[in-house]
Simulated scan of single mutants.
Amino acid sequence: MSASDSLINQDDVSGMIADLKRWPNTAVDHGDFELASTPYLTFYFTYDPEHYLAATLDMIDVHGSFENALGHPYLIATHPDSERPHPYGSKRLGDLREWARKTPLDQAFAVNFTDEKNYKSSPTHSAYLWREPTLGERHQCYSSIQFYYRWQWWLDNRDIWRRFVIETIELLKPAQVYSGFAMGNPLEFGMRAEVATWDRALANHFYGLDTDYPFGMMFSPDLPSGIRPPTWGFFLSDIWREKLGISRDDVAAHLADPRVRIDTLHCGHWIELGPQPELYPVENGVPELPVLANRLLRRIRHPLLDLVGSGEWDGDPNERFNRSDTQRWLGRFDDDSDWPTPEIRGRTPGAAPHEPTR
């Protein structure tokens, strides 16, 4: 994407909107790469520095379990040291558990797996593992495991998927977990700018399309300082429930709706806002269940996450989230929200929002 050319035009956006309404796991072709809306699942967790090796090995085990459930779809994996991509199964990659033992506490452990040979394209199945190094006060930053998978696979294997989620939560004791639909981040790091352009273009049209970019969100003072507004599946850990000052029974009472599933675990609640994730086109109205959850969680919501994850340049023709739009988007499930426009929400247009201060 150049500084002088737009990545997308209104016809591209209109076509993608129509396609997503028919099938939520859809790609748009940009010639030399494709970007797609995809189901995702991301775990954000901290670890005891004394047990960093055990945490790293747990990550590897979690990935192995999910790979088995997917049916071993990967074609590419990155080297744990050089981070270069190689064919999956290549001897150059070495033994992953041995690399975990070689990677010290003060270095990140990162490895990625994908079924997409084009590093610029969104994958259909992938796993991105990142153990954050402990460097002074940064030990409270989140590590993460992010998964992408086909929508049809989820529809056919939702019970296997849920069992995996619950077992992983019990193992990692994460601080935050989210699942729903988001634009899939390609393996190539620099493609985040293109993904963020689609994030912003589609955000006006779907309440349920999340934006999930662990590398931009998990570093202090971002996601560890507040939660995201969930669109469907999420984990309310005891860590964040206690910040709300409520009991486990209070959580169940607030979310007492027959459409809401709550699994009570030893370290918190896994919650699903309806039988399956939805994109929620804005013309169908503000979705009830995300609003219900938001009323409970609003006090611990992060006011201004980094939704882009990469800088912008002067004269950039591609619109992405700015600070004021970010704040409005994060509050789209608030009862007094005017996102995406006051007219769509049935509100009288007011003054432009002030740009918030971090």
Rank of each mutant, 00 (worst) to 15 (best):
G245K: 01
P221D: 08
Y74S: 04
S121G: 05
A77F: 01
D222E: 15
W151L: 13
P317T: 12
H302C: 04
A203W: 00
F109S: 12
S122K: 03
F113I: 11
W313C: 14
E355D: 11
F234Y: 11
Y74W: 13
R323I: 10
I17L: 01
R22P: 00
H354G: 10
P49L: 06
V282G: 02
L297K: 00
V286Y: 00
W240V: 05
P290S: 02
N185Y: 08
H139D: 14
I60G: 02
M16I: 09
F206Y: 04
P342N: 03
Q327C: 09
Y149W: 15
H63Q: 13
V291D: 00
V195S: 04
E288R: 10
T78L: 05
R97C: 06
N284Q: 11
N204V: 09
A36Y: 01
H354M: 11
T357I: 12
P303V: 13
I160V: 15
R97G: 08
P87N: 15
L209I: 12
A55P: 11
E194G: 03
N157P: 06
R259H: 05
G311T: 12
T168Y: 03
F147Q: 01
Y149A: 06
G64S: 13
M16P: 03
L129V: 11
A110Q: 15
A3Y: 05
Q10Y: 02
Y149H: 10
T78D: 06
S4C: 08
R97V: 11
T168V: 05
G180Y: 00
G216W: 04
P24E: 03
N112M: 10
D159L: 13
R301C: 06
P356A: 04
E272N: 02
H79V: 08
H205V: 02
D81N: 09
V251C: 02
A175I: 09
P24M: 00
S324F: 01
A352F: 06
P349K: 00
H72N: 15
D159K: 12
P80G: 09
I262L: 12
D48C: 08
R320I: 14
L187W: 14
S179I: 07
D11Q: 12
T357H: 09
K120I: 01
R162I: 07
S4H: 14
P186A: 05
A175Q: 08
H354A: 10
D238K: 04
H139Y: 12
P287S: 02
G71L: 07
C141S: 14
R358K: 13
S310V: 15
Y40V: 11
S324L: 10
D249E: 15
